[in-house]
Computed example of a mutant assay.
Amino acid sequence: MLVELAIGDAYGGAFEHAYPSFVAEHNNLTGYVPHHGQPGAPAGRYTDDTQMTIAIAEALVSGLRWTPLLLAEQFVRAYHRDPHDGYAPRFHQLLSEVRDGEELLRRLRPQSDKSGAAMRAGPIGILPAVDDVLYHAKLQARITHDTPAGIAAAQAAALAVHYCHHRLGPLSEIAKWIEGILPEDVGHGGWALPWSGKVGPQGWMSVRAALTVLTGGGGLARMLHSAVALTGDVDTVATIALAAASRSPEVAQDLPPVLWRDLENGEFGRDHLARLDERLLHI
């Protein structure tokens, strides 16, 4: 799961908020392209979506009881040991300045409804019970996105993985299942409403777009291409969609080998993700 979502993030990051003409020309899955909007960032490098997901996954496999302080420490540690781009400018600056989780919690103003809590929530879906998924997704969301929409988006993203991992039904019904658990209105018309067009910055937009990609069926390659073709915040859409799809027995695991080969593989790159994945899937 972690390697697949990182591939989606790294591939999608090159197209985040890019011109539709750029997306149409280069979205062909033949390899990574340099990140649009991040001059000098090497192709195949993942963004904050994956880095914060790693922090969540490491918190899960630690076996420690989750608290806001534990998670804040994870976020700070993950960033400082291997700084990555892609964070919202203010949060990026804050992470760069703080030295521990206590300072991060003290300085944060967590009133965002954007996608940061949703993009990192996938590993939580591995947990065995829906109530556990909802609780942990909400707890981590409240650190940075303590709004009804920010929390609901994180819970929906985690539930998507839960549905696929625990084989709760056909992929075509995933959005309707989530809507049955999260019926509260956060202003977007419902999780099962198909998404079309450019994906904006709010978390519910990325999640609903990802659910539309998932219910469209096909293999991981088709889903990655479809997510990026939407334009907008496509790395987050791809991260959320591939995290869930990688755990579905219905989905062909057909990402091109070049995307596996060329995903960054430093100390916390592809091999680290694979090892962490192995631990995560056995908690």
Rank of each mutant, 00 (worst) to 15 (best):
L2G: 15
A6S: 14
I7W: 04
Y11Q: 13
F15Q: 11
F15K: 13
F15N: 10
E16H: 10
E25V: 06
H26E: 08
N28E: 00
N28W: 00
L29Y: 00
L29N: 06
Y32M: 08
V33T: 12
H35P: 01
P39G: 05
A43I: 05
Y46D: 03
Q51D: 03
M52R: 04
I56K: 04
A57H: 09
L60D: 05
L60P: 02
S62G: 09
L69C: 11
L71E: 01
A72S: 13
E73I: 00
F75I: 15
R81C: 04
F91C: 09
L94A: 14
E102H: 02
E103S: 12
L104H: 00
L104T: 07
R106I: 05
L108E: 00
K114R: 14
S115M: 08
A118P: 13
A129T: 14
D132V: 03
A137K: 07
D146M: 14
T147H: 05
A149L: 07
G150L: 08
I151T: 07
A153K: 06
A156Q: 11
A157P: 05
Y163N: 04
C164M: 14
P170L: 03
P170N: 12
E173R: 14
A175V: 07
W177C: 12
G187I: 10
H188G: 04
A192W: 13
P194W: 12
P194S: 06
V199E: 14
G203A: 13
S206L: 07
T212G: 05
V213P: 09
T215R: 10
G217H: 01
L224F: 13
T231N: 10
T236P: 02
V237Q: 11
V237M: 10
A238Y: 06
A241Q: 04
A241R: 00
A243D: 04
A244Y: 07
A245F: 03
S246D: 05
S248C: 15
P249L: 13
E250A: 13
A252T: 09
A252R: 11
L255D: 13
L263P: 08
N265L: 10
N265M: 05
G266Q: 01
I283P: 01
